[in-house]
Structures are given as C-alpha cells and as structure tokens.
Design a protein around this nucleic acid. Structure first.
Lengths: 195, 195
DNA sequence: TTGACATAATTAACAGTGTTAATATTTTCA
DNA sequence: TGAAAATATTAACACTGTTAATTATGTCAA
C-alpha cells in the first residue's frame, strides 16, 4: 500500500493505456514497449500482469462484453413494452453502442477475425445472440411474428444487425443514406418480412 | 528470356506464394522472409517487385475483385430472367463466392478493417454495390419491389448480404441453422419486407 | 570473343517487435 | 533490524519490415 492507503491497480492502468493506444493507432501499430512507455514502466513489467499481448486484448474484449451484458439484461427483464418493441429496442441498442464506440467494435471484429471467440474464452460474447433469440421467441408467442424456426429468425436478425454495425464502422467514408433512416428501415423491412 | 523462350513472371510467383501463405496462416503470421523462403529468393528481392508487404496485399485484393467483376457484369447483362430473379441471383452469387473462399473473404475484411478501400485504391471494390443498386432499381421499375429511395433499398440488401458473409466466414464454429436455408430465408424475408 | 551496360538478385545492416531469464529494487512485517 | 515476499528492471534472443551497398547474371554491339 502506498501513502494514500490505496493499492494502485497496475493491471487496470496497463489495460487503460493499452485501450487508448489501440483505439488511436490500431492493434498492430501498438507495441508492448509503447504501452509500457506511456505509463512509465519497463516493457517486461506488463508480462507480470498479463501473460502476453493477446491476453491484454482478451481482457479488453471481456470488459467490453460485460459492460454490454448488463444493459441487455435490463431489456430482457423489461415487460412494460410489447415483445416486438422490446426486440427492436434491443437491436437498436446493440447498433447504437457499436456506432458510439466504432473503434472498439472494429477492435472486436479484428480480434474475432483472427481468433475464434471460443478460443478466446470470452463468455459474454455469445450472450447477445441468446438474448436476441429469447426476445424473438416471445414475439412469436405473442403472434407479433409468424411461426417457424426461432433460431432461423434470430439468426436473420443477427446477420442484419451485425452487417449494419460492421459496414458502418469499417466503411465510414461510404456515401451512406442518412444513418438513422438506414437503421430504422432495415429493421422495419425485416420485421415486416417476418410477419 | 530463358531456354523455354518464356520470361518467368517473378511478380506473379511472389503473389501466388504470398496468397497461399496468407490463406494458410493469416496475414500477420506471414513475413516477407517466409514468402521469400518458399520460392527460394532472398527477402529483398520481393522489394524489387512490390514496394512493401501492403503492396502485395493490395495486388491480391485487386485480383480478387477483378475476378468477381466479370461474373457480376454477366448477371447485369442477362435479361432473360425477371429483374427480381436477377437480383436474387446476384446476391446468392456474392454470398456463395465468399463462402467458397472464406479465407480470401476474411483477408479482404481484415484489410478493409485496417485501411479504408479508398486509401487502398482498389477500383473494383465498390463495384459490387453499384451493380446491386442497378438491379434493385430495375426491380422497382418492374414493380417487383415497392417504390422509394433506391439507395436505401440497395444498402439494406448490401448490409444483409455482407452480414451473412462476414458472420458465416468469421464464426464458422457457431451453431448456424442449415446454411442454405439461412441464406434463402434471409433474402426472402428482406424481399418480402420490401414488396 | 570481348567488354560495356542494364537487369536481377544478394548480403549486411538498422530499428523495431514479442517474449524470457536472470537480476535488482522496493515493500511488508516479525 | 533483517528476512521474506512482492514488484520492477536490465540484458538478451529470435524475429519483423525495410533500405543501402554490393555482387552476379544476362544482353548485345564491336
């Protein structure tokens, strides 16, 4: 313990420095030495707290998904709105959080492209789909969507949602239609097609 | 010229070796030295034919998109089928080619995530969207799709198509519904939602 | 066939990378 | 105070992309 009677959390300090640098310059342009320099530690110190560079990325991804998880649960437990409105709320939340942190979404995409989520061992990564499926099945029960394979419907919704996030974050310079209109229209179109 | 009266195309040899290695091990695990070793050249020779590693990637991407471009043109010029069938053919071709070369699709995704296509200067990369837009507008003219903003409709279709390709290639271990069913259903759903 | 020129390829080197082993410093507490 | 535990550092290895300087090879006129 130091003079402030607070143990400084070096592990967190490293993670935050890494996050800032990754977001600013991209994963491959940021070295362990650069992270260490930014917080005035020697490079090898990072290896005391994280087993390697990928381990840092993995913790970053874990935190990112955990942060989302709580808001998702909230939607799941909210029974005030109709099941279809709840489904739409969830999808929009997912998209808007991605667009609010385009850097992190790109980072996660890159990470998943290189290593499968299972290999990464990020528990919350697959949770988004499970919630989407639950919300979809409620819509079917309430006859807001037509009957049929729940997984199939949930996957169609997922594909569309991810497609939006992926293209909007990775191709920001494309001449998109007004973004909010695009988001609303694409969700509307699919819901209509599933009625 | 050598004894066979054929000038050996070192540039192409390098590109093919690089492609094989990238597909097998991923971009970041393949070094210039490894590419050179595979074809029994010294590493620096590669720099005579390509200005750097990114330049190799850029040529790979260029070839990939050029190859697609021809098949796309064919669909565009085929007026035997109805406009809506032509649109569906195009989308399916796009998806199936991605699934047939998951490695290349992932490579392109990684490339675009790191550097924007404009910065890469790949001319054919944006051509897919233009064709999609043309086919969509024909469907509107033929009253196979409802009236409204063509770009908006084309972008919704693009988002869905890319979402399918991206998730199916990047998350192969996910418990997907039967893939052909998923592809057909998602296209059907959107078309229905746009009628 | 010789020699000059252009082409093609190589060696040596630089600065930077992830990562490890061995060592030094600082803190904790009996 | 001094031993033990926690924390951090230096030095090093094998590897990376890339460049400058050098050597080998092929071409073709005299």
């Amino acid at each position: 313990m130091n003079s402030n009677n607070e143990k400084i959390d070096v592990k967190k300090i490293i993670l935050e420095a890494a996050k800032e640098l990754f977001l600013e310059h991209g994963i491959n342009s940021v070295s362990m030495r650069k992270i260490a320099n930014r917080i005035n530690y020697s490079p090898t110190t990072l290896y005391i707290y994280y087993s390697n560079k990928n381990d840092i990325l993995r913790h970053l991804a874990k935190d990112y998904f955990s942060e989302y998880a709580q808001d998702y649960e909230n939607i799941l437990e909210n029974r005030d709105k109709s099941s279809i409105d709840n489904l739409i709320s969830f999808i929009k939340l997912y998209i808007h959080r991605a667009l609010a942190n385009p850097g992190m979404y790109k980072l996660m995409t890159t990470l998943f492209a290189e290593t499968d989520s299972i290999h990464l061992g990020i528990t919350n990564a697959g949770k988004g789909y499970e919630i989407l499926k639950t919300l979809t099945s409620r819509c079917i029960i309430d006859k807001e969507l037509s009957e049929g394979n729940v997984d199939l419907k949930a996957q169609i919704l997922w594909v569309n949602t991810h497609g939006l996030c992926s293209l909007l974050t990775n191709r920001p310079s494309f001449h998109w239609s007004e973004i909010e209109v695009l988001i609303d229209s694409s969700i509307e179109t699919i819901i209509k097609g599933m009625k």
